[in-house]
Design a protein around this nucleic acid. Structure first.
Lengths: 203, 203
DNA sequence: AGAAATATACAAACAGATGTATGTATACGG
DNA sequence: CCGTATACATACATCTGTTTGTATATTTCT
């Protein structure tokens, strides 16, 4: 009755895939653990063994793809040799372009993200801190290159920019926000970066 | 057996109060509807009659005090005769001062807000739109008084400022964020307002 | 105003879903 | 080859939402 390690891994993957499909189709509350287990060809015991919990299964699903802001944080790694603020802006523009595609996935991913935020806030905190750190690092690089106005210390600019992005992306994810990532938010970011930076003193 | 309208209202209030106390003490998942009902002197029937649901009870609790950003939105109504950006900044400073008190309530209110965000996103959207509208109105007033730099149209400035505030307040609410509302966020807001505004051309 | 009709405010009973405790066959490590 | 941890299945107790029952406050009709 006991499966091999590889089989167990397949079981886990199957449960994840079936769970995602059912949750996506019927909503989180409307699908029972037993329904998932049966559709995957097991009993609830298997689900509880691998994920301990319905909540655990949802969190594993969130971990799998990564939450939207987490994926954003992963992309915000800028080459220190280039102009950091320009690079940063370009990275965000590309990321937002990708995010505005995939509208099918968006709603489910958003509810999953909201669920994760409510159920595992500490996990969320960690990669929020990552994003803030990544952004602040960029502004520190800009500051080191004398590209920030003196009234904008890197810490302040980084905090403000992190807030701006996370706040607007979250609002956008919830939908019906009445603005677009690629036009409005990018516009706000452009204006912000222009407002904190000063022209290259070296020419 | 049927209660009078007034008695029913008292029943509802009792359930809310007992529910809040128990949820606060033991956490949302750890307290059952029956536990609340019994502690309030009723059966689960009463809870389900008044709130339909455990989720409904939680949302009613959230409605009662209002979510943090909702209360903030209520305070952002600025006298159009005064300097709108100065007034706005002062309002935020006062509100943040109040928020950094009441540390006892903060954690529970935050989990309640996260719960509400996950379970009733449309409700959240509505007062997020309120806050954005209130902020944008202020920047429009400033624009009307020629107090915004031309590279900052009111819509862009309002969107950016809304994102900055909601993003940072939410991050702060989750705790462990490593920054303070009254110093760091206010500092970022001051710098932002200074960056978008220009001196009074008439004075 | 009094009586009948109806809606209200719950309690009690029921059906499913949840998490936990336990059982067990077997892959794996020593 | 033997002991143990693993990968589940099964059984159980609790919690959940729903349905039904019912006494009575409230409304409506005359």
């Amino acid at each position: 009755m006991r499966r091999t390690k590889e089989e167990a891994g397949q079981t886990r993957e199957r449960i994840l895939a079936v769970g995602e499909r059912l949750f996506r189709a019927k909503g989180i509350a409307a699908v029972s653990v037993e329904e998932i287990a049966e559709a995957a060809g097991f009993t609830r015991g298997a689900v509880h063994w691998h994920f301990h919990d319905k909540r655990g299964l949802l969190l594993a699903l969130a971990d799998r793809r990564g939450l939207p802001l987490q994926r954003l944080a992963d992309r915000v790694k800028v080459d220190p040799d280039l102009e950091p603020l320009d690079e940063f802006q370009a990275v965000i523009v590309r990321a937002f372009g990708d995010m505005e595609q995939g509208s099918a996935d968006r709603q489910f991913e958003t509810t999953l993200a909201a669920f994760a935020a409510a159920e595992a806030p500490d996990r969320l905190r960690r990669f929020e801190a990552d994003l803030r750190q990544a952004i602040t690092t960029i502004f520190e690089a800009a500051e080191g290159g004398r590209r920030l106005k003196p009234e904008w210390p890197a810490a302040t600019a980084g905090l403000a920019c992190y807030g701006l992005l996370s706040g607007l992306v979250n609002a956008w994810l919830r939908g019906e926000a009445g603005f677009s990532l690629t036009t409005d938010v990018v516009g706000a970011l452009r204006a912000f970066i222009a407002a904190v930076s000063r022209p290259n003193p070296g020419g």
